[in-house]
Nucleic acid binder design. Sequence first.
DNA 1: CCATGCAATAGTAACGATTACGATTTATAT
DNA 2: ATATAAATCGTAATCGTTACTATTGCATGG
Lengths: 137, 137
Amino acid sequence: MDVLTAMDLLKKKGFKYTDKRRDLLKLFSDEKRYLSAKEVQDALKENYPGLSFDTIYRNLSTFSELDILEETELEGEKKFRFTCPTKEHHHHLICLKCGKTKEINACPMENVTTDLSDFQVTGHKFEIYGVCQVCIN
Amino acid sequence: MDVLTAMDLLKKKGFKYTDKRRDLLKLFSDEKRYLSAKEVQDALKENYPGLSFDTIYRNLSTFSELDILEETELEGEKKFRFTCPTKEHHHHLICLKCGKTKEINACPMENVTTDLSDFQVTGHKFEIYGVCQVCIN
DNA sequence: CCATGCAATAGTAACGATTACGATTTATAT
DNA sequence: ATATAAATCGTAATCGTTACTATTGCATGG
């Protein structure tokens, strides 16, 4: 996933091309880590001083639905990151300070031996949390 | 973990014995599933009509710190359940409708081959989500 | 090109979950 | 019993998120 591909996808789905969307995507493309709505607002406030939360949240959830962004929830806050280029299903080791991630190859679902048939399974979550080298110092 | 053990633990730590705490623990002991603060309030409102959120949240987080309750966050809401009697570290299959759980034996951390040494790992989360038989119907 | 229609946005209010506060009540030790 | 500190109530404040209305701006067709 990159900015141009994402903008093309938006266009194909009937969404409009706006500078805010381009810059929003560029931010995620540059950062490649989990960001909160607040962090997005801060990062873009120089170019868009009046950028409203309505705009931010609406676009983030639109992008998320189109799989342009990945979404998770850390410490009660929604976080978004540019979808990893890795095609295969994977999980993340996440820095709780800055949102930086590292891919975990294995999916734990493959090793589950517990019988799950008495539930209709709809999803799963596996995340490892920590503090990255940069944030430790 | 049971109500009496929990109340003893509270006493030992210098917390006071109150009817509300006993009934709160009894609720979790009876239900053995994840409950939200709202559900706790609803469940106890017959006996304690004026039970305030301050009391509920304060006790829930106290219990959680003492490992009397386990805590997780589902769909933006904190959820608590009585700590499983199972001694070994384990994870849960959780019904998103009613909070009912089933224990998953394996811990995915054992099968992770990715090098984690560039992060200071502080924790992990593995949960499988679904809908239990009762809630499907 | 300009006009038209509808999506996108700003500004702000509303909302739900959680936390915090001052006044009052209650459990416990003496 | 009394003192003391914790626990609670009632309610307000806070935080993150969502929703609303008026306005702006993109894109399509004359």
